[in-house]
Write a protein that binds this DNA or RNA. Structure first.
Lengths: 337, 337
DNA sequence: CTGTTAGCGCATTCAC
DNA sequence: GTGAATGCGCTAACAG
């Protein structure tokens, strides 16, 4: 004789309501074949009548699968991480998975480790780590035993699957474009040193220059922010002989544009500028920015594919999926006069 | 005689290893007072030795608390939603909660309902809904029984707690600023019609104009994109007597700036432009944009506060927390000549 | 202070 | 085709 407490209906309630056993209800819920059509119908009615919703927590306890994926990301306020996250979430949900996120504000390996541990406790079936710093990538070197994982922009050497955009190729496209326009050499405003994207873009830029037998100027250091680009732009405006600049992202390119404009330098007449990312704003900069487009949507989709394959088939050979960037020519670049 | 299968250690393993009962392990893990220091130490050692990690799914099953919060958001690729999401995640995690996200691509009430149901099945302890469209807000009218919830930018009338930024006030600040600079009236490039922010900004703009006894021009419709701003800017550039424009967000302001620049209209000499949001790029537009800053970080923190209060104390009176925006003057506005 | 017992809500054997 | 047991890993009562 318990006091009748108001609580959410459970499977047993549905079973009683439908006059069946609770595992028949379970069978209906999980689309098992061995259920007569009319029984199924009775159960489905009962479910609706009671407003029953299944308890995925209880299910996860017994199946040892939570159908939740963890995402560890760094500063989801930035365009790249935010877009990647969006792509991941869309792909995961359409595959029937939840996504649980952790956004890091610092970028050390310890933070990434903690985040992964935290997610592991929660019982995620796998993790995707969007932490494109060299230091953060180290956190992937020894994961909680057997945890399926994929890294976005991870290092070559780590023992994890990796999905990335070909940064080197993107930078090469940008630099070659400028060279073909007749520029003697190309200056570079780089991203923060520890980031893998920064390194890749520097490598591609340098390679293109060296292949053409040109001087490789000292790159200017940035941090992805428009302000850093602005600072670099001021310096470049004061220098002699600068006719072409490749900024490691669009925000910094914006800063460069601004600094040049303030210094009375006309773009692209006097200096050509190229960015990287193709954020939605770039097309409307003054002038509209020539840049390298990254398709974060496909990156997200690939992450989920790779991860689900690991989850379903157990550990696989560590894949490395490389997405090609697309070069977008607009009005911030022109031939040298 | 089971075959010794490799599996993750559970509480019972730790208990055996430490020579205590699994209950004592539980007590250590949950910081219960009644454990002798040396027992605690033995248990902690065993935990480390075995690499034990607790199973939060099992815990959630019995406590009926998952310590997970759901976030339903629309297009987390946009600066506002992305920043809000970031604020929410930070606040939630520092309060010891996970966050599980659902990003919507369409904006109807059904989509929001499905998302909330989905999260409810997963056993989230509460949801924050960042779906600032009028149609989406309707989905909050009758939630799954007793689910704690808070809406970001929800309507007044819905029976949920709401955290929002004072859009009307922001728009008023922008418009008054332009009026004070001597502009006869102010044109408006609005956001998409269904969005609550759009409505609030139109209201504030209109109110400021009417308070000053000025003409209220027909607002131009946009969709937050730079492209829409560009289109509106083209129209404005062709019209006579336009000296001041208030765009409903910074991206559209960028488009306006671009269109004006192409038309040979100088900003702010001939036309002053104000935006809304203060995205990181705005300071480096040409010219640097005068705008209204929204602090999404505090919005996120407030959301979590309100939600946790509901979770801990049961249903409360529906709060409505309003955050004041800050007006930021830069170089895109100037007195009329 | 610590151990024992009893479920949480479900899926997975097995019976029938 | 359906029902009866059993246990996932944990916390909450209650004993001792």
């Amino acid at each position: 004789m318990t006091t009748p407490k108001r609580r959410l209906p459970v499977m047993a309630d549905v079973a009683k309501e439908a006059g069946v056993s609770h595992q028949t209800v379970s069978r209906v819920l999980n689309d098992h074949p061995n259920v007569r059509a009319d029984t199924r119908a009775r159960v489905e009615e009962a479910i609706i009548r009671l407003g029953y919703r299944r308890n995925l927590v209880a299910r996860a306890l017994v199946t040892k699968r939570s159908r939740t994926l963890g995402v560890v990301s760094f500063d989801t306020t930035l365009y790249g991480p935010a877009s990647t996250m969006y792509g991941i979430e869309q792909a995961a949900r359409s595959a029937g998975y939840f996504v649980s996120i952790v956004s890091l504000k610092s970028i050390d390996a310890a933070g990434v480790r903690d985040a992964i541990d935290y997610l592991a406790e929660q019982g995620v079936d796998g993790v995707v780590v969007v932490a494109p710093q060299r230091s953060a990538a180290r956190a992937l070197e020894n994961l909680p035993s057997g945890m399926p994982a994929v890294a976005v922009e991870g290092t070559h050497d780590a023992d994890v699957a990796v999905v990335c955009i070909d940064q080197v190729e993107g930078a090469r496209l940008a630099t070659r474009h400028l060279l073909r326009l007749g520029h003697e050499t190309v200056w570079h405003v780089g991203g923060p040193p520890d980031w893998l994207e920064s390194e890749g873009r520097v490598r591609g830029w340098r390679a293109a220059l060296e292949e053409a037998g040109r001087d490789v100027p000292e790159p200017l250091a940035g941090d992805w922010s428009p302000r850093a680009g602005y600072g670099a732009g001021k310096i470049l405006a004061r220098m002699d002989g600068v006719t072409a600049v490749f900024a490691a992202n669009d925000q910094m390119a914006l800063g460069v544009l601004r600094a040049l404009s303030e210094a009375g330098v006309r773009v692209p007449d006097q200096i050509s500028v190229v960015g990287f990312d193709d954020i939605p704003e770039s097309e409307f900069f003054s002038p509209p920015l020539t840049t390298v487009r990254q398709d974060f949507g496909v990156v997200g989709r690939h992450c989920i594919e790779v991860l689900l394959r690991q989850i379903d088939n157990g550990p696989t050979a560590y894949e490395r999926l490389v997405v090609r960037p697309v070069f977008v020519v607009r009005s911030s670049t022109a031939p040298t006069r």
